[in-house]
Simulated scan of single mutants.
Amino acid sequence: MSETTADTDWYGPDAATFGDRLAAAREAAGMTQAVLAKRLGVKLTTLQGWEDDVSEPRANKLSMLSGVLNVSMVWLITGEGEGVSSPDEETLSPEVADILGEIRAMRAKMKGQAEKLGRLEKSLRLLLKDKNGDA
């Protein structure tokens, strides 16, 4: 498993969400959610929604986030570019790195399965709509 862990792009689009990257950048900057929300002029629940991937910030807040957290907007959105170091670049024990690698791999598989499920559900709805429309 160590080989996979070393090759994992921790904050890339297949392994992490916008919320994951935002939380990682906030933590790397040593800020709590409450402190960052106050600096951005948003409610704590708004910031929590961003980190939980329930909602996304508007462009002006995204720009402020990248400035306050010292990461690029592109990194926040895609995981590419100037961002925070991946956990595997920090001093982690091999056991912790392996567990984190497995979690990331599972998350990527689950995301793929959820997308596939959504496509199947849409296909089924269209078939049922067509069938009910023909009756």
Rank of each mutant, 00 (worst) to 15 (best):
Y11N: 06
G12V: 00
G12A: 02
G12D: 02
P13D: 10
D14K: 01
A15W: 15
A15S: 05
A16P: 04
A16E: 01
A16C: 14
T17R: 03
T17Y: 14
T17C: 02
T17P: 00
T17Q: 02
T17F: 12
F18E: 04
F18M: 05
F18W: 05
G19Y: 00
G19M: 06
G19I: 07
D20T: 15
D20M: 12
L22M: 08
L22C: 15
A25R: 10
A25K: 11
R26P: 14
E27G: 14
A29H: 05
A29K: 04
G30H: 00
G30W: 03
M31A: 11
M31V: 12
M31T: 12
M31G: 11
M31P: 09
M31C: 13
Q33M: 08
Q33P: 10
Q33F: 06
Q33G: 14
A34N: 14
A34F: 09
V35D: 15
L36K: 02
L36S: 06
L36C: 08
A37V: 12
R39L: 12
L40D: 13
L40F: 06
G41Y: 10
V42R: 08
V42Q: 09
V42I: 08
K43G: 10
K43Y: 07
K43H: 15
L44R: 10
L44V: 13
T45D: 11
T46G: 07
T46R: 08
L47N: 03
Q48M: 13
Q48A: 09
G49V: 01
G49R: 03
G49C: 00
G49T: 08
W50D: 00
W50E: 00
W50R: 01
E51L: 09
E51A: 06
E51P: 05
D52F: 04
D53N: 09
D53Y: 05
D53F: 11
D53H: 09
D53V: 04
V54Q: 03
V54H: 03
S55G: 02
S55I: 04
S55T: 05
E56W: 14
P57K: 11
A59D: 14
A59R: 13
N60K: 12
N60M: 11
N60Q: 15
N60P: 13
K61N: 09
K61R: 11
K61Y: 05
S63C: 08
S63Y: 10
M64P: 00
M64N: 04
M64S: 14
M64W: 04
M64C: 08
M64L: 12
M64I: 14
L65K: 02
L65Y: 01
L65F: 00
S66H: 01
S66E: 06
G67Q: 04
G67F: 03
G67I: 00
V68K: 01
L69P: 02
L69E: 08
N70G: 15
V71F: 03
V71E: 02
V71P: 07
S72I: 07
S72N: 09
M73T: 10
M73Q: 06
V74L: 15
V74E: 14
W75M: 05
W75Q: 04
W75T: 02
L76W: 05
L76A: 03
L76K: 07
I77Q: 15
I77H: 04
I77Y: 11
T78N: 00
T78I: 01
G79M: 01
G79Q: 00
G79E: 02
E80Q: 03
E80I: 06
G81A: 04
G81Q: 02
